[in-house]
Amino acid sequence: MTPETVTAEVEQYCASVRDALADLAPDVRDDLLEDLADHLMEVAAEGEGSLADRLGEPSSYAAELRSAAGLDVPEAAGEHAGLQDRILVTVRRAGAAGAQADSRLGRVLGYPKASQLIRALAPGWWVLRGWIVAQLVCAHRDGGWSYIPTVGNSALLGAAITVALIAVSVVLGRRTPHFADWPRRIAYAASLAVAVWGAVVLAPYLRETNYTIQSVPAGADMYGGGVSDLYVYDQSGNLVPSARIYDQNGNPLQIGVPDCTDGGRGAGSTPIDPSTGEPLTNDWSYPLCPDQTGPFQPPGPVQSGAPTPSNAASPTAPATSATSTKTTGPPMASSSP
């Protein structure tokens, strides 16, 4: 019997019966199923109706075959004795329970068996698998990421490779069930590896876009308006030049112009604390540029650039009276209810 003459239905039925007898020793099972394909072909050629209509579901066919062949209980002889015996029984029971769950879950999902739904979804997985492998061979090497991988700046080549790999994956997916035992196992293992690789390595890339947006806030929304910068004034209305602002958790507020391109320091230079001359250790906290002038001039003499008076806020304890935000003040200073 050549594969061409075996109809898809016969193949499917055979495979299902074989699956249901998966717990048997391979030689025993092969023996038992030796004539099955020929038998099914003959039944199929003989009349109307599906094989399942005339012979019952593959699982019940397998059960009947097993029972009639006297294989309900594992042979207690020789190599199968003792512990192995019990393991075989356990495995078989698990298999039977699995088959039952398969049918029950299937009824809920509107299929005779849940595994049939999974089988119906398989082509979707084949496409996804091809795409993941395309990402593996292309995007990974560039260090970049896009849904259609680029190969050496060529999106077209990347797309062509993706399509080709998807096609290969689909063809492979259709043929895998007909492979011999070992090639089939290898194919399934490789498929699993691709799935794991896709989940572990690729999934973070898919989220990366969101990370980028969140990590560089352009400002803050407060009272319905955009707040792009904060200035701290003391009680006398003087600008507090080195005030840093923290939220209720003690984290520096990352608000303001992130790069100090003006002020004569040049882009990328580390902000210097004007009171100490030391580089600001938490240099992402407010204020980012030491020589800010503020949105308005105070009524008194301007003390720009000079060390902060002691009655004003210290750099780590910003004044609260002049700021327009409720989030000022280090966590230690906030009163607990």
Binding site: D31, L32, L55, E64, L65, S67, A68, A69, G70
Partner: peptide
């Protein structure tokens, strides 16, 4: 008589 029963029985009688 079920097909599977006959095939199974044949296998068992043969064994």
């Amino acid at each position: 008589v079920g097909d599977a029963s006959v095939y199974g029985t044949l296998r068992r009688l043969y064994s």
